[in-house]
Design a protein around this nucleic acid. Sequence first.
DNA 1: TTGCAAGTGGGTAATAGTGGGGAACGGTGG
DNA 2: CCACCGTTCCCCACTATTACCCACTTGCAA
Lengths: 147, 147
Amino acid sequence: MFTGWSAHNIDAKGRVAVPARFRDVLKQKHGDERVVVTTSDRCLVAYPYEEWRIIADKIGRQSQVDPRVLAFRRYFISGATDCTLDKQGRVLVPPPLRELAGLDGQVLLVGMQSNFELWNKDRWYEERNRIQENFGDLSSFMAELGI
Amino acid sequence: MFTGWSAHNIDAKGRVAVPARFRDVLKQKHGDERVVVTTSDRCLVAYPYEEWRIIADKIGRQSQVDPRVLAFRRYFISGATDCTLDKQGRVLVPPPLRELAGLDGQVLLVGMQSNFELWNKDRWYEERNRIQENFGDLSSFMAELGI
DNA sequence: TTGCAAGTGGGTAATAGTGGGGAACGGTGG
DNA sequence: CCACCGTTCCCCACTATTACCCACTTGCAA
């Protein structure tokens, strides 16, 4: 499980250090350090290679013409890039993804259990505030789950 | 059961002593001194490791794309950090969490029965005042529960 | 007073993160 | 086909942070 946030600098070459505890999860649970980075709403999402395969396979079996499938492919699948960690445990974030998520200076690496997200720091705090304002909805949802 | 407050100093390295009576609960009820610290509204929350596992497992089994689940993960789960106590019975609070909860100087450790909270002292008194102002609503709610 | 338990502070070695030089690779244009 | 250029990857060196110790202080109780 990936949990906890860390703030790291993205350097001039576009490299971001993956926190050691995330690397441990990759190695111990998945046996390698391959990750696939793709886009999400306001951030990037990094999946362990196998987790990604499961998702990609499911989509791969869908229609070639259904507009909803096409839309999902364009939005979610198309940006996916293999980003194996370098020997120092960093991912090189490709320029288009970097730009899309507004990654520069401080980047937050956010554990989301089965994957982790890469956030521009300001956007992350905006996101937190947004969630907090709608917390009423959330707490009733959590009650449904028995939390 | 964790009950009562204590004020402790957070030192230059970000360490806070956990009160001895909380440590006793951890040891006797849970067998170890592992705690998971995560974020909440205005403070941090520390869970005994097993308590946390139950919550995290429930969320972990939910959807990867449902916005409500994502919001809850981002808000509540993502900050969770393993903070095992050191030999002196202190937790090291990671810098991002420290910053979010505004922990510096005096920190209040507040027992909340199954877990305990870490508060910036000023925020804690603000929170108490806010509760007190709304006490009318509260007491009718309590009456419904038969208290 | 002495002794123990609880809290506080700081030194040090190991680990994690940062930054940059330079070789290797791949794409482009002549 | 070859020369050039930009990107990626690997390596090394430096710095910051963390984990693990040990020592001091304070307060309570015997």
